[in-house]
Write a protein that binds this DNA or RNA. Structure first.
Lengths: 246, 246
DNA sequence: AGCTCATGTGAACGACCTTTACATGAGCTG
DNA sequence: CAGCTCATGTAAAGGTCGTTCACATGAGCT
């Protein structure tokens, strides 16, 4: 039966070859299925075809694996938010809303990452690399808020960009975790999570005095400076940000 | 020390006397300490001074205990939100913001309940009693939003109350879970979670056209159904909801 | 006093996390 | 190519948990 050994060897010998990566992938799948709480180290090992002790050669413990996944998640998150922001094209408000949708899309499409990042109880501030990745992701929102704040309509006080970024983040996270994932998604809602968040952000921006009527595609480089009376409601699409005709 | 034994016996003999309640209290403490994920059934039993099998006389399994705690949490939550709302006194906007603060206060002061309710992975829709309790709590926010929507300034479209309620909920939950609890609270912020949420809600309400500061109230032919408070620009310091002078 | 049933106990099972001692073999060195 | 070394795997074992089951206890009723 030595051929058998040879064959197995070709597939995966005594040494796995890429166990670390295999474990991360397995864990990702398991978390997506059963949540970070339900995921077990032993299952990941089984899925990778190794003994239960093998993972300890690559991760100090179960938490470190989770932490690695969270970090990877923040990196992908940053990348997607950056792409959505697209440096503020075609105009700042449009791009800003696209970032919001990208946030929700990530939460929906990458439940395992999102779970590990925000719902697994992994302490972000304990691992410097993780914390840095988390901050880089947040900085995308922050930078976008910065650009938006700079466009504050004349006559109104300029809102602190950091505050705006935190507000947007909390809205997106709130909608994502309450309505857009897992069991929470089963709640009966009058509108989709995307629409809900979009309306929320638009109303918020209007509250800051930004023009939120984007119906005519902007021809100039930036949305036209706010008309003097902008805050009197001239920028409101008919019916408001909600009640969009399907 | 035999009196001690006698006393203990009087307190708890072979039969505990009030094990169910003792387990709930023990679990509450453990969850506050280590989170719902870290809480163990065995620990709760130990803390109540009974064997590991005893809890099964009162709860089908660990999840049912968690679920019970979540339900109790929603009941207390509802009660606190109701008290904060105080039927909209002294005016709708003020009361509405008080509800927001009560939300955060609950998340901060009752981390165990909040954890069980929103972060433990307990499926709300599986248990009818739990779902009902959850809905009653949400209905407080919803009712408040209803009243607020009725005050929509004349001339602007009236926002759907349900949507407003969902928006407010998502803001409160987002701020609470990102900045106000556990490790998340360690993030460095330019302002406290309470201030952050208050500003967020105020900006949002302004986006809906509610008078939250210096903006002159638009007069119209149709007087609001609910008396004078609509046009009283109370609550917000000049310069916007942020930039509060300490 | 005796019965009954809710409530608690102890033992046992399987799953998991983690550590420890040992096995294997990939890659370097001579 | 032989031999060494060390990263990477395994098996076994200890501890904790969740859960079940047969059995013990005693509170309350008749």
């Amino acid at each position: 039966m030595s051929w058998r050994k040879e064959t197995r060897r070709a597939e995966r010998g005594y040494h796995h070859g890429n166990l670390k990566e295999a474990l991360l992938q397995a864990a990702l799948g398991l978390i997506a299925e059963k949540g970070a709480a339900g995921f077990t180290f032993a299952d990941a090992a089984r899925m990778a075809g190794v003994s239960a002790a093998a993972p300890y050669r690559h991760f100090r413990d179960r938490d470190e694996l989770l932490s690695s996944i969270a970090q990877r998640g923040f990196e992908q998150f940053e990348s997607r938010l950056t792409a959505a922001w697209d440096d503020g094209r075609p105009d700042t408000v449009t791009a800003f809303e696209r970032v919001g949708r990208a946030y929700l899309a990530f939460a929906r499409e990458e439940p395992a990452f999102y779970n590990a990042m925000f719902e697994s109880g992994v302490p972000v501030d304990v691992n410097p690399a993780l914390q840095a990745a988390s901050e880089r992701a947040f900085n995308v929102i922050r930078a976008a808020a910065e650009r938006l704040a700079a466009l504050a309509p004349p006559g109104t006080p300029r809102p602190p960009a950091m505050m705006m970024a935190l507000h947007i983040w909390s809205m997106a996270h709130g909608v994502a975790s309450l309505f857009s994932r897992g069991d929470a998604a089963r709640r009966k809602l009058p509108m989709s999570p995307d629409e809900l968040l979009e309306a929320e952000v638009l109303i918020y921006l209007r509250g800051l005095g930004f023009p939120t009527d984007r119906r005519p595609p902007a021809k100039s480089a930036e949305p036209p400076p706010v008309p003097p009376e902008a805050s009197s409601g001239s920028g409101v699409p008919p019916g408001g940000p909600w009640g969009k005709p399907k």
